[in-house]
Write a protein that binds this DNA or RNA. Structure first.
Length: 289
DNA sequence: CGTGGCCCCTGATTGC
DNA sequence: TGCAATCAGGGGCCAC
């Protein structure tokens, strides 16, 4: 499951291995991988052909490659199981290869989008008119992520107070803060000693600031580890390789002792997912639903 | 309009 | 042993 730090590692890999290259041919092997592209697979391939890719950017878990001299970007999301790989042209196709991008240079590598569960995909979108960083229009509603220097902490706190929702829902609400998934939400809540069903409306400024700090810490720790592991030909993220899961304190630790107090951790079904928490450190709110 | 919930998908795992 | 149910989860979309 690629979270924000893994997507940032992918972005850096793309910057190194793909930026500045000109597309020669695009092959869409699974229509679902381009389902967000308005014109369909053939249109995606035709429009991308001949274009030169710019420096990749990222917001939350979305990343995009602006096309040189056009107000157009290739937008990508890895979903649950997506990978963007730079592979030798003669490497055998991956089992779940969905899109192949060939380049017109002689570097001998191509870009591949591989995705088992097909939740992710690539698409072409126009740039928001007055956006400095070339934000694609379809993700204009995605908030800045907590590692973005322009993330507005005061506005975030006010937005939390205004919402009539619970804290974990708010962490996963991409219009408030982006890039926080189920795993890091549980980690940040554990570190903050907050129950996932705590209402956001009465969170004090220090509490929300602490929570945000823990979100950043969790992400930066993963980034520090993941950022050193991919200095190779591969632009590779494998969220299930477990390079950070040994450092998880909450997620996936049902019945294991809380690392703070020793109480067995619990798992609760939540939004078709799971929430992991310590029943002692993270007390439920008085009016838990 | 804000909030909550459903569903897209495939493969590993679990249960009978 | 084999088949079916369950689980994993980002985020768009829709109903209330």
């Amino acid at each position: 499951m690629p979270e924000l730090p893994e997507v940032e590692v992918v972005r850096r890999g793309l910057e190194r291995w793909v930026a500045g290259r000109t597309v020669e041919a695009v092959e869409v092997l699974h229509p679902r991988a381009v389902r967000r592209h308005p014109g369909g697979a053939a249109d995606f391939a035709a429009r991308l052909r001949g274009e030169t890719l710019g420096v990749p950017r990222r917001r939350g878990k979305y990343l995009w490659l602006p096309l040189a001299d056009r107000d157009l970007s290739v937008l990508g999301h890895l979903g649950m199981s997506g990978q963007l790989l730079v592979q030798p042209e003669d490497a055998p196709d991956e089992k779940h290869l969905r899109i192949r991008v060939r380049f017109g240079d002689d570097a001998g590598t191509e870009l591949r989008f591989v995705d088992q569960r097909t939740f992710g995909g690539l698409s072409l979108h126009e740039t928001v008119a007055d956006s400095a960083d070339g934000l694609p229009d379809v993700i204009a509603h995605i908030a800045r992520d907590p590692l973005d220097p322009l993330f507005d902490e005061a506005a975030y706190h006010l937005a939390l107070r205004a919402k009539r929702t619970t804290v974990k829902r708010a962490l996963l609400d991409q219009s408030l803060i982006s890039g926080v998934g189920n795993i890091y939400a549980d980690e940040a809540l554990w570190r903050s000693k907050l129950h996932y069903e705590r209402p956001t409306a009465n969170l004090t400024r220090p509490r929300s600031a602490e929570l945000l700090g823990h979100v950043r810490d969790v992400m930066n720790a993963a980034l520090a580890v993941g950022g050193t592991s991919f200095d190779s030909l591969y632009v590779n993220v494998n969220g299930e390789s477990g390079y950070f899961d040994r450092s998880l304190d909450a997620y996936g630790r049902e019945d294991e002792p809380c690392r703070r107090c020793g109480t067995p951790m619990r798992r609760r079904p939540w939004m078709n997912r799971s929430s992991y928490f310590c029943p002692r450190c993270q007390r439920p709110p008085r009016v838990a639903s």
